[in-house]
Design a protein around this nucleic acid. Sequence first.
RNA 1: GCCGGGAUGGCGGAAUCGGUAGACGCACCGGACUCAAAAUCCGGCGUUGGAGACAAUGUGGGGGUUCGAGUCCCCCUCCCGGCACCA
Length: 861
Amino acid sequence: MHQNYTPKEIEAAAQQYWNNEQSFRAVEPTEKLASADPSKPKYYCLSMFPYPSGKLHMGHVRNYTIGDVLSRYHKMRGFNVMQPMGWDAFGLPAENAAIANNVAPAKWTYANIDAMRAQLKSLGLAVDWSREVTTCKPEYYRWEQWLFTRLFERGIIYKKTASVNWDPVDHTVLANEQVIDGRGWRSGALVEKRDIPMYFFRITHYAEELLADLDTLDGWPEQVKTMQRNWIGKSYGCDVSFPYDKVSTGTEGALKVYTTRPDTLMGATYLAVAAEHALATQAAKNNPALTNFIEECKRGGTAEADMATMEKKGMDTGLFVLHPLSGEKLPVWVANYVLMGYGEGAVMAVPAHDERDFEFAKKYGLPVKQVIAGKGEEGRVKGESSAPHLPFSLLSSLFTTEAWQDSYANKDGVCVNSGKYDGLDFQAAFDAIADDLAAKNLGEKKVQFRLRDWGISRQRYWGCPIPIIHCPTCGDVPVPDAQLPVVLPEDVTVTGIGSPLAKMPEFYQVPCPKCGGAARRETDTMDTFVESSWYYARYASPDCTTGLVDARAQYWLPVDQYVGGIEHAILHLLYARFFHKLMRDVGVFGDVSAAQHNNPSFNEPFKNLLTQGMVIAPTFYREKSNGKKLWLNPAEVNVATDAKGRPTGAVLKTDGQPVIIGGTEKMSKSKNNGVDPQAIIDQYGADTARLFMMFAAPPDQQLEWSDSGVEGAYRFLRRVWVFAHGQADHIKTHGHFDSAALSAEQKSARFKLHEILKQANFDISKNQFNTVVSACMKLLNTLEDFTKHETHAALANEGFSILLRLLAPIAPHITHALWIELGYGADILNAPWPQVDEAALVQDEIDLVIQVNGKLRGNLR
RNA sequence: GCCGGGAUGGCGGAAUCGGUAGACGCACCGGACUCAAAAUCCGGCGUUGGAGACAAUGUGGGGGUUCGAGUCCCCCUCCCGGCACCA
């Protein structure tokens, strides 16, 4: 028996044991998959799989520890647990590494996977490694390609042009991340928007279902559901057509816009179109200034955040349209804030009741016409309280910002200055104006979504090839099943200029599968979000060679608990939900009866969701002579404190000279504030790393890294070890328990133990693991205090068994070793979860708190 | 800019339903042990005043509801995540 706590040996032995026993091998009942043995419910616990960047970072450790705690907790509670792991292996960083180090992306990726797998294993995760999935392998992505062809045939995937960031020097499409201050990250060239053909998933066809089914996700954080609802953005509005003014435009037809505020239609004073809009192109023909402006609008990247924060600019086209109800001539402007990709690429502007329109109108001297006033204020116009009847057209100078702020987005007001609509409230005006538009055939009510279709074409090498062949006679032909997978050649040179596949005739020169004529294979690859949209299903049957999944998926799906970063709250989680519905509708999960179709657990992939916060750490730096900051790793720095423990300064360990203390930020390479998990595991062991991670913050909050906090976690585990060995003889006697015969002091100790357990069981059911750790510490404190005065074998035995089992999911190695050593059983994984003895919680006396006017005034016993 | 979060001692955090604010840990201070240090153990620790009992004050800022607010409502500030090609 070891008297000293030696995590390295203890952890290696425990991992060896689990490996030999295949403790985490997840097995589905073999007969009647769909109606599995109800006595052992299944629990599929999934953590978001890592991108194989090369090294584990603290975010991974946190993510996988949370998943592991949940897995082990459920295993001890009698669930049939499956916890898989895999690799989100396609993506941009592999190409960047290829350019920087002249190594093929495949080689780099596989080496990283090997390194990170070893690191993950050292954490002692209860993972079934036989289910490992790697998305860059043909046996995985061939089924993605298969699904693509089915969806293409069904029209769920279609082709259209879309804007991308174009680097005119490197002749390469750039990701938003690669555009820095409007310039290409490598070339430094000003980036421009370029329209290219791309394949799209028609996710908008599922918008209604994706929105409605959020209501069935009781196990998701409200915050995430709200974000998804807003992202999908269902709105009730009107299509409105503004007929062209024939004199200025020389054409028939109308300019179509969508608005959620048809009640303000009488206040429209101009229209704005995107730079790419046909009307803008027409107006620019004989207008060099407008041509220049349109060119200017096309400069810069495609990121929405940039669009929304840039200075609003516009230019008059000189063209007019007619107001559909009043017939008034309204000018048409080109504006850089109108996006061609949204709706119709044109908007009606109501400066009096829209903040952005108001700023624009003020800047360019366009008229502002108020048409909504607060209830009871009809007949007078805000900002001019003494003037009951101003002319309909107000200049912006008469219309103060404050007055506008009061009323601009006011749906509680009533119409003014709106002719026959005066006095109508929002809903009445909405209906009346929509009816009048419909009668004139110039508009109708319409439900619209903010959600846009998902463009998945990437002009990049390291991704899943799009299984399409372009034939001059047959058009876009999906690759037939027999020719799948379209294998991505792995031995390539990546230069960062253009797409490697487009330079490989041996890849793209192919015969047409339909007519046999010469054709060209698509050289774009898919967005890596596609792979991560269905991997959760693949884990159920990772070796399946007949489809995406087989019948085993019916047993394991849906995922019972999904764990991952909050940064995935919208895109990844929405795409995966979408994919689940696609797979269902293609029949991937087998024939779906109507009853199953209405079953939420069949329509959604993730029953419960836990979004974890980031891992952050302090930053330290020195100013270099050129004014730039030299970031120093926290491990290289000593922080000095005053007598009260407040930090007074910091010095570099190597030279003893001062460094500047920066903010506490997300661990990153750029700020050099990352702490290598491997170093922590090597020094203190995986149990300490896991314990600290779980203790330092609740899972959904940010976690601040602290070296001394890690030491504290280590100290606690050592105390557990020392206590166990000091008390081993008593604990092992397993004395008979007679709760009625306990002394007052023994009763009080047992009360404390069960009171702590009760709280801990409540906390763990809420995923609040930090207070579960705290409970373990309290249990040890209680046991230590108690055994100072007396020994009671049965009580020590019971108390310590509670402590070990409560701690087991968090620090599995040490608890595994002690459970066996103290003779509790062969394997703590098979031990039952500790239960509160309510009899222990009966109290003879209580504290009574006296409050007077809400203030504490006394305490009675 | 838009959407979603967050803010509690020197620090991380706790407070389940609106009812004793600061559990648990870290840091720090004092003591024991030691030739000494480390480790360990014991004690203290929001702020202000007081020798003390105690009193006042205190959960980012301002206002409100309530017998009573960290918790509910309104306004504001700062920080973080996402914004469709980072994953």
